[in-house]
Design a protein around this nucleic acid. Structure first.
Length: 315
DNA sequence: AAACTGTTCAACCGCATGGCC
DNA sequence: TGGCCATGCGGTTGAACAGTT
């Protein structure tokens, strides 16, 4: 103890005091005031830390999923140790949990991501913008209550490095078991021609090239099946001088579509974390043209109708 | 069974920032 | 406007636990 303040592990009683008080009255004017009110003899920041990282409702305490790992790696490679930003796209995870998980586990498994960050962090002016990581996933087999496709789009800088170690996550996947009844989504084909030296800055800003063909329904059944799992690698420009984005490859998005949609935004029902968008970005912002072409009509997320409200996360 | 080593997780610390007086 | 204070954030530390020898 220093200055009369208690330190060390929190007891169950202390946890309950804080939890009950905040649930009833909120935090109040200050954390120190809360501590004083409860007679905890803890400093305010300690109370805050305990609440934010452990007691706060909605926190996930279990293991990180593969999708979460991928997001962390990808975000770290782009933003470095901005744990609060990374935490913002992982509902239920705290910056502390992510930081610990990275330092204890992921850093060793994905040294390439760590190196990539070290390389780019030295020159922030090279950071050219919305390298976004958007993942929507479902790892709850039992759920069948949304119309949202299980898809993800990972935009990354294809900075080649011989991969003697696990590749960074490039795969968009659907953990749910395939549903035989799931309707096919169209397959969108892109020009595979390499154009690293050509192109326009506007395509870079959008992050996705225009497709050259769209196949659907009978065409798919005729033999052009989208690969399971879903893959949508998108190649962004390499630093330092950002070349245009070139979508090298093609595959798109196939996913079961749920039959009984639940609009969480309408009902106010708490979204199952396993189903939550892993990004504050509405899917409709991923690429409006693409969404239109493949016929996805996704509702915006309340509070994020304005694109500027979330882009700041990544800048 | 004990000692040692490695890993994980939570608490703590220092610094930066913003609000208030 | 400057000082004080609370908060937010990222880095570090250390206790507890698990695995290995």
């Amino acid at each position: 103890m220093r200055g009369g303040m208690k330190k060390g592990k929190w007891s169950k009683e202390e946890d309950n005091l804080i939890k009950n008080h905040i649930e009833k009255y909120g935090i109040g004017r200050s954390w120190q005031g809360l501590s004083n009110t409860l007679g905890l003899q803890r400093c305010g920041r300690s109370c805050r830390s305990r609440w934010l990282n452990y007691l706060r409702p909605g926190l996930k305490h279990g293991n990180f999923t593969a999708a979460e790992e991928r997001i962390i790696c990808e975000m770290y490679s782009k933003r470095g140790s901005c744990w609060s930003i990374i935490a913002a796209v992982l509902p239920g995870r705290t910056d502390l949990a992510i930081k610990n998980y990275w330092n204890s586990t992921l850093k060793k498994r994905f040294p390439r991501a760590a190196r990539s960050r070290r390389r780019t962090s030295s020159d922030s002016s090279d950071d050219t913008g919305p390298d976004l990581t958007l993942v929507v996933y479902n790892d709850d087999e039992s759920t069948s209550t949304t119309t949202a496709p299980d898809l993800a789009l990972i935009v990354y800088n294809e900075e080649e490095e011989s991969a003697a170690e696990p590749e960074l996550p490039l795969v968009v996947y659907n953990e749910e078991e395939e549903s035989a009844a799931a309707p096919e989504l169209p397959l969108v084909l892109y020009n595979e021609e390499e154009s690293a030296t050509a192109g326009s800055s506007s395509s870079h800003s959008s992050g996705v090239d225009k497709p050259v063909a769209v196949l659907s329904g009978s065409q798919l059944q005729a033999g052009l099946q989208p690969p399971p799992p879903i893959c949508a690698p998108v190649q962004a420009g390499a630093q330092p001088s950002p070349p245009p984005v070139t979508l090298v490859k093609e595959e798109l998005i196939s996913a079961p579509v749920r039959t009984s949609p639940v609009d969480y935004h309408q009902t106010g029902e708490e979204m199952d974390v396993g189903w939550a968008l892993m990004s504050p970005m509405p899917l409709s912002y991923m690429d409006p043209d693409l969404a239109r072409i493949i016929g996805i009509d996704l509702p915006p997320i309340a509070g994020f109708e304005d694109i500027g409200s979330f882009l700041s996360f990544f800048n």
